[in-house]
Write a protein that binds this DNA or RNA. Structure first.
Lengths: 235, 235
DNA sequence: GCTCGATCATACTCATGAGTAGATATTCTA
DNA sequence: TAGAATATCTACTCATGAGTATGATCGAGC
């Protein structure tokens, strides 16, 4: 669509040389573009996608609608950008944790903590709530693929955990749904209840997932080798 | 608005006598009204609230828009009716379980099972996704109150469980958020993945909540005695 | 000072969808 | 069978919001 920027080398200049006057301009433009995306995320967060008009977003930035369209191609792309901003930290968490040599449950917990924080972030709503229903088929496929990547990553960690004995045997699919669901839901209530930080919430949730509701007695935990958490009955 | 039904006694007839020919008529009307609500729930389910027009709903019923308006006052009320239909079984579950003399965890599990089934039901989407953002302030308050009632009910069961020793000590608020969130999220994926029945899913989730991810050895499960003081040393 | 491209505003178009006014058809009762 | 409810349709109004055509402005380089 927008092809103005298609040829960044004005032909005839030395290619690799000087970042040239554009660099600054570009950065400037990029900064504004990001401001638009942040403003959109904020508005979507508060009022929902459908109840937010591009006029609203423009007004929040103290510009007019065509200005917004100067930076993004349309509303759907705007949502998509918010989605990407929200999901990227989660993908990063998977990469980060990959080669740490930890047992799978520890890796899973680390990922879930990042996941929870991402959902409670500015872009959490957009990430969690970008629905097929609101999107063109192409965009829907794209988003679904990214979501699925996360889902599969969680399932894989669960499977690995069951194999290395750090996770109680369970159905990886259902368990992944339960974990992700609980965390996703944070986006629905965090807005109104900010008594905890995202990190605290994520940590609390991970603790709940780990232990489960059923009370556990002290003795047994010890006999699982590599674990450090202890429980004691104080009579 | 619609005041045709305002004076059911045509003045001059004996008031308390004969249920009169109206009864049948009324039932008929009620049947159609429910059909409208079901059709709406179905459409909301598939395409979301904002992407469903009343024309769509009318078309699904093979009538026209004004006919739909003959049975419901507006789109928002329609969503509200769907919400009520979805949430009622959950409220019923609380009542049902109340005087059963079970330990709190068993009562909680029963409620959660019903909860999960409700979310996976036809009206699950509407119940879970009826957002303040889409509703008038009055309606929003009403829905929030009903949702809060459920939330408080779950928290109460958790607290009772911690007291009677059937539930591991935990923060009731966070735990309730985690449980409800995981179950609510079913509404997002059940549509596309129907490999399990709602009851099976609910049961699987409850099992996950109970046990947690941390492996537990076989022996210990048996020794859950009535009441003991337990202290957990975390980290 | 002039030109050119980047940026932004004014003032539209156009489609969609909620909700309604005012017929018309149907059915039940007297 | 007249007439009164009841039920449904045709044909609108009206507001909103996405997206655009077009022109003004501003700053950098010559």
């Amino acid at each position: 669509m927008n092809s103005r920027r298609a040829s960044p080398q004005p032909a005839g200049k030395s290619p690799a040389a000087s970042p040239s006057p554009w660099r600054a301009r570009r950065r400037d433009r990029e900064v504004k573009r990001e401001a638009v995306i942040r403003a959109a995320a904020h508005a979507f967060n508060r009022k929902g996608y459908h109840n937010t008009s591009l006029n609203d977003i423009a007004a929040a930035l103290e510009v007019t609608k065509p200005t917004v369209y100067y930076y993004v191609t349309n509303k759907e792309h705007l949502l998509f950008q918010c989605f990407l901003a929200g999901i990227e930290p989660i993908r990063a968490a998977f990469r980060e944790v990959k080669d740490l040599g930890l047992p799978a449950r520890a890796r899973l917990n680390a990922v879930l903590r990042h996941y929870g924080e991402a959902v409670a972030s500015e872009f959490g709503w957009c990430m969690v709530r970008a629905e097929d229903q609101d999107l063109s088929p192409a965009m829907s496929r794209h988003i679904k693929a990214l979501k699925s990547e996360i889902d599969q990553g969680i399932r894989r960690l669960i499977r690995e955990g069951v194999q290395d004995g750090s996770i109680e045997p369970c159905d990886p699919k259902m368990t992944a749904f339960a974990l992700a669901g609980a965390l996703n839901w944070i986006a629905h209530w965090y807005r109104v209840d900010q008594s905890l930080t995202p990190a605290e919430i994520a940590a609390a949730f991970v603790a709940i997932f780990e232990g489960g509701l059923r009370p556990r007695s002290a003795a047994q935990v010890a006999l699982r080798a590599p674990l450090k958490r202890r429980v004691r009955i104080a009579r």
